[in-house]
Design a protein around this nucleic acid. Sequence first.
DNA 1: TCTGGGGTCCTAGGACCC
DNA 2: TCTGGGGTCCTAGGACCC
Length: 418
Amino acid sequence: MMFALVDCNNFYASCERMFNPSLNGRPVVVLSNNDGCVIARSNEAKALGIPMGAPAFQIQLLVERNEVAVFSANFPLYGDMSRRVMTILSEYSPEQEIYSIDECFLNLTGINEDLAAYGLKMRTHVLKWTGIPVSVGMAPTKALAKAANRIAKKFTERTGGSYVIDTDEKRIKALKWLPLEDVWGIGRRQAVKLKAAGMRTAYDFTQADREWVRKNMTIVGVKLQDELNGIPCMEMNPVEKKQSITTTRSFEKAYKSLDELRERITTFAASSAESLRKQNSLCRSLMVFIETNRFGEPFEQYSNNLMVKLPFATSSTIEIVQSAVQGLQKIFKEGYHYKRAGVVLMDFISETNLQPSLFFNSDPRHLSLMQTVDKLNNKFGTHVLKLASQDMRTWKMKQEHLSPAYTTNLNDVIRVKI
DNA sequence: TCTGGGGTCCTAGGACCC
DNA sequence: TCTGGGGTCCTAGGACCC
């Protein structure tokens, strides 16, 4: 077996920079929705010590002193750039697993070439066609490919951004270099436990007693140990349908009334339902949740969630919204300052596997109605059609540093003067 | 004033059944 | 002191990922 893990460097920051070359060499950060906290940093921003996840207001001083370029997250742009990168990479293997917006696994088993050079070829190709720098790690297991990727990225000057672990010597050298907490699959919790047991590097972990690992880290830990020892346990996962679809947002200000929350929940449920239809699924239950400011202060805290079983499988926005709002009414309590809410759809079946029930079924008229709505919304841009109860008030996300929709809106396409 | 959003998998323990 | 035991299904919560 041979896997590649290809990963875009500082992806969101690289996307912003791609359309604004004057930012080359300058520190760049991208903020989450509501301009809340840092979700991407260029190397220069990392070097300034701006931590991942830092609240925007806490890095204000650093930003001003160092002329850091700050952007509000522009997810349509990143999604579009991702699609382009992934399409190029798919040419390098018969099997691609898109693992996240900025990385994918490729199955390189049977590719009869010098792999390090093959990785460099991918990197050059992607950079030339999209302007996005990527790193390529290759190894006989997914976990080792992840480790190889870290080496490719960390030592770009030496590796050119492409590194292969194809011998036991290289494997051991890599694992002795890789700190425990940087291993794919070992999180903060486990790292503490492993360090307490005297381990420090990925290599130490591979030497740990198998039974101890099973007891302390379940079967997941045992598989990871095998993977790092070069025994593949994780296969390529073909792109499958999602098992749950979530829409959640923090609010710019606190909401107190049921009416305000009802509008938000309606909008979230509608957005989730749209994604559900996109993958041709129906859902049989959903969860709605609301919460006050989890950072406390100065008001009393309350958070709650509720699972709602739908009377039938459906993808109708109307029916899903109804159930979500019923759920909201059950958990809503007067007197709190709500700061976040969300709707999770789950328990899916495929449209084609629907077994109609004798008495309770989704309103058959909704399917064609929804198809029409989706078609129109697709054709004329987002949400020319929506429920009357959606977006009643002028709800707005804080986005003070939003870049143009360079690739998805004709008016924002970059013009080149000749 | 100001702290994101969207996923997956595994397990323990309760409910229920025989 | 002194409990029956074993299977299955479901769910909440924890851990991890990006």
